[in-house]
Write a protein that binds this DNA or RNA. Structure first.
Length: 404
RNA sequence: GCGCCGAUCGUAUAGCGGCAAUUACACCGCGCUGUAAACGCGGCGACCAUUGGUCUACGGGGGUUCGAGUCCCUCUCGGCGCA
């Protein structure tokens, strides 16, 4: 049977896990490594699909939970599915809603992100105090997760089967198994428990998917979890690798300092011939580490969210366009950048748009940031092919960190 | 000329005897990693300081009071009304 998703490796870097390749999907090819734009509600915020194409984006990742809540899977289907609905005929993915188990659960109302920057600053929950960690909008049990809609308070119970069913309605080329993304603050005991659950859910996701005809048109990726623990990560990689997924996602919480190690543990175990997506990772330094350690695709809200909030990537590091020093700066955001915003506008103008809250501000800033990240990863791909990855990385990071 | 009302941090405001004094905007800075996020947090009289302290401040001057942005008198300026 023809598989919906296939993957060719074009070139590898000896001694590392890095590779350049091509993911073939029903809506075209993703040349990897690649950064996938996040378009949660079938919209990459502030950007039209023409802008996305022009800045070089190859694919878009939308979200099952959000589209299920609004406008609802029936309407997505009525609009002809994700591609048609949003006017994007390139490759697409949908996240399963597993991230919302974390972001609307343990992460809700706290400022804990899935990346732990400073272990010491965040004492692990000694015991899982149900009151202290009680999710505000999510209740997890062995069978699935109950979400309370922030829109109208209604309760929605999502099981692995349900997540896949919704993703079938949405119709992305690549869909993900329903998993539990855990908080980095959880105890090892809880990570263990959640991991077993994620593995059971992975199996159920896969079985449900394969039972449907549509699995010929949509590829399903299984998700590796395991938090920051080596044994759990390896165990998870082995368990997920053993199932017949079309590719893999690496999810969950990481320690900023050893994200690359965690990714390596996993990718040394995952089969080489299938694509690997590092979920939710997207700062420049992390992308290099991800690529070097065998990841093919990435997605992250950082470029678009930071853009809307006024933080812009430059080759010399990030700048906040709202800072007083840019109000009279007549240079482009990033000297030498070929994006639409840099070709046509000054920092002073972007600063003005930001401060006056004009809609054009988030738009131009999003174009720039996405262009920056998408092309940074494209550069990595080219560097792998050209066998110059090492110097590409060193040169970039040296400059990027020079202002700090 | 008479009467009434008003004057508080850049702007607009709150304040009705215990106040360095509310809120919003502006201003300054920080944060954001599978989007709860065009959002959130902090600062915004001065000088010291470890919790904290000292000084100067609610149009000017005077008074009542242990204590006044708050009450009284008066002046200045502004608004409205009547002459």
């Amino acid at each position: 049977m023809e598989k919906p998703i296939t993957f060719d490796i074009e070139k590898k870097i000896p001694g590392t896990l890095a590779r350049a390749g091509k993911i073939h999907t029903p809506h075209g090819i993703i040349e990897t490594p690649a950064f996938i734009a996040v378009g949660t509600k079938a919209s990459v915020r502030a950007l039209t699909t023409d802008m996305l194409r022009d800045l070089g984006a190859q694919a878009v990742l939308a979200n099952t939970y959000h589209l299920y809540m609004q406008p609802g899977e029936a309407r997505v289907r009525a609009m002809g599915g994700l591609h048609k609905m949003m006017g994007w005929d390139g490759p697409t993915m949908t996240d399963s809603g597993g991230f919302q188990v974390f972001s609307l659960g343990a992460g809700y109302g706290s400022n804990i992100s899935k990346i732990l920057k400073d272990v010491a600053s965040l004492p692990l929950l000694k015991e899982r105090d149900e009151e202290a960690v009680k999710p505000k909008l999510v209740q997890i049990d062995h069978d699935g997760a109950a979400f309370k809609s922030p829109l109208d308070g209604s309760i929605h119970y999502i099981t692995p089967e349900r997540s896949i069913e919704i993703q079938h309605s949405i119709g992305a080329d690549i869909i993900f198994a329903f998993d539990e993304c855990t908080s980095p603050a959880e105890t090892r005991a809880y990570q263990r428990e959640a991991l077993d659950r994620t593995h059971r859910w992975a199996k159920r996701s896969l079985e449900y998917h394969r039972s449907k005809e549509i699995s010929r048109k949509q590829g399903l990726f299984g998700i590796v979890q395991g938090g920051r623990y080596e044994d759990l990560r390896k165990e998870s990689a082995a368990a997920i690798a053993a199932m017949d997924f079309d590719g893999f996602g690496i999810g969950g919480s990481f320690d900023k300092d050893d994200l690359h190690t965690a990714v390596r543990w996993v990718n040394e175990i995952l089969p080489e011939g299938k694509p690997r997506h590092l979920l939710g990772i997207g700062e420049p330094e992390d992308l290099f580490l991800g690529v070097e350690n065998g990841c093919d695709t990435f997605d992250c809200v950082a470029p678009t969210r930071l853009a809307r909030h006024g933080t812009l990537y430059t080759k010399e590091g990030k700048i906040h366009i709202g800072n007083a020093q840019y109000a009279d700066d007549l240079g482009p955001i990033d000297a030498g950048c070929a994006c639409y915003a840099c070709r046509n506008y000054t920092r002073a103008y972007l600063s003005h748009l930001h401060k006056s809250r004009e809609m054009l501000g988030p738009m131009l800033c999003s174009i720039h940031n996405l262009y920056f990240i998408v092309n940074l990863v494209k550069g990595m791909r080219q560097a792998i092919i050209d066998e110059t990855f090492g110097s590409y990385k060193t040169d970039f990071l040296k400059k990027y960190n020079s202002q700090r």
